[in-house]
Design a protein around this nucleic acid. Sequence first.
DNA 1: AAGGGACCTA
Length: 646
Amino acid sequence: MMAGTHGQLWYLGMMEENKLKTSEGTLEKARNSEEWRCQGLSTQRSCHFMAFPSFEHVITMDSLCFDSWFTPSWLDEEPARNGFAQDGNRCNDHALPPDATAFVTILRNCAKNKDLRKGTKVHDDITKMGLLEKCSDALVTMYAKCGALSKAKELLELHISRNLFSWTALISAYAQQGLGKEAVDCFEKMQRAGLSPDAVTFTSILKAYGSIGAADKGERVHDEVVHQGLLENDVMLGTALVDMYAKCGALAKARQVFQNLSSRNVITWSALITGYAQQGEAVQAYACYEQMQSEGLFPDAKTYACILKACGDMGAKDKGECIHNEISRQGLLANDFVLGTALVDMYAKCGVLVKAQQVFENLPHRDVTSWSALIEGYAQHGQGEQALKTFEQMQGGGLAPNEVTFTSILKACGALGAVAKGKQIHDEIARQGLLGSNFLLDTALVDMYAKCGALAQAQKVLDELLLRDISTWSALIMGYAQQGQCEQAVTCLEQMQQEGLFPDAVIFSSLLNACSHSGRVHDGHLYFTLLSKKYGIKPDLEHYACMVDLFGRSGHIDKAVGVIQGMPFSDNLEVWSILLGACRKWGDVNVGRWAFEHAIQFDRENTAAYLLMADLYAAVGMHNDAKSNQALRMDNEGLKMLEVVV
DNA sequence: AAGGGACCTA
């Protein structure tokens, strides 16, 4: 076969099912392979290069050819992979070396294709040819777009670039990879170097500010953007502002910016909806979603993903199902596993786990996030066994769990009391070096041991952490409280304060419970007083209930009554039931009857209350009263139970 | 001519 004058191998057509006709002859497709993976592309984009039916880049739609400066490296390597010998002579581009301008074009091509391998090779050639200075900016951009951020940074700073585009490319790349801090550093360095940001730079840095929650800096950019009049015709910049405020939790501000924009599109709306959904304002998110549609804009896959989250939070199964139908109708699940995960999560949160499982099984791709959503669904709804089973299936498929998966599976272990399995997970977490890097995971681990009653283990995990947060302590204190180990719980309280952490309402509930169960009336009362006086926490119903229990259990019925009467809330069934239980214990018929009367006002069929009251009468020898169905307003079922008691 | 905006799991 003749070598073409350019040495390029062009695709000309399909000969047979697994043979390609090219300018240089025939290529055979690898056996059993439907597609050729784009090795040069970042896995994040997960792009596939389809050999059939057309020989085009599936994203850029460019026609592709082999052995040119402009060919992505994965394509250059394709002939070899398919058993074709590489013919060194064919690559004539090398015989006519490009100048700096040509190299810049080549680098842009590499950036566009995210072809780091070729870009690096080109960098090498540029250096050898002494063209580095002239190509430096293009190299920085290429490295930034290919995700090689340290290389980009190195070059940028080496030549103290004066090119706003290259600086912006790096800032933007940092922001896109979630490296907000680095993006900010770069942005500030750029300004110190005397370059002024433009609308694109602002858009990029706003994303970074959003990711690190720097609303103050974001607001300064906002002012500057308004000052320069950049917002007028720039939807992207406006969207970035909305997103920045939303990510920082400043939803009112996000909404305000949104409303003042001269134009909006589906992305702008989605930024706002996402903001509401992420801050737990599901109702607002849904309202926006409907308003967007009433203004004639159509949601896309990303909009659906975030509104599904809102549906899950609201437990709005029917709304979620409608959206599911729409998604299916549009065939959006075929190439979007983020959306698939959102759907699984929505059904799981709504408690429809059969449906969640079913959607999950029908997804074309499953990643660790979709698995985790399902596992968490089971863990959340008390189906620990199923959570464990799913977890094992996931590992069996060769997928590695991440921090979120571990957190969910630990929750399942704790609920099941499966301490051995929990320990195994603990070891795995430690092996992966994940301990101490994530408060939520650390806390889940302590909580798992605590729930299993393995308090020494729980304490050990907590002790070995260098940094702890209030939830981690809370998990341990709750464990001690549940075992009635009041002293240990108090010790924890003191230790956490020595670390500069302030206990919260939940911790005091645990603590009061612990005092109550170990008969420490004085301590309990003291903490209840300190709660508001020292810690500025407004006691909630739970705390009052603990106090009723604390006094009642220890025989201070009068004080228990005093607590109920002093509650700033209306009374509820729980406190009366606790009081009645205490009266039963101490044989206080008068207060007991009073508590009983209140309790059955909340629930006439409250069998537990009837039984307690009957039990109380029986305990003090008032058998007639105990049997008196008139006094107790017992139904037949209750009477039968009463006979058993008396 | 190049650099820019929204999604899922604790």
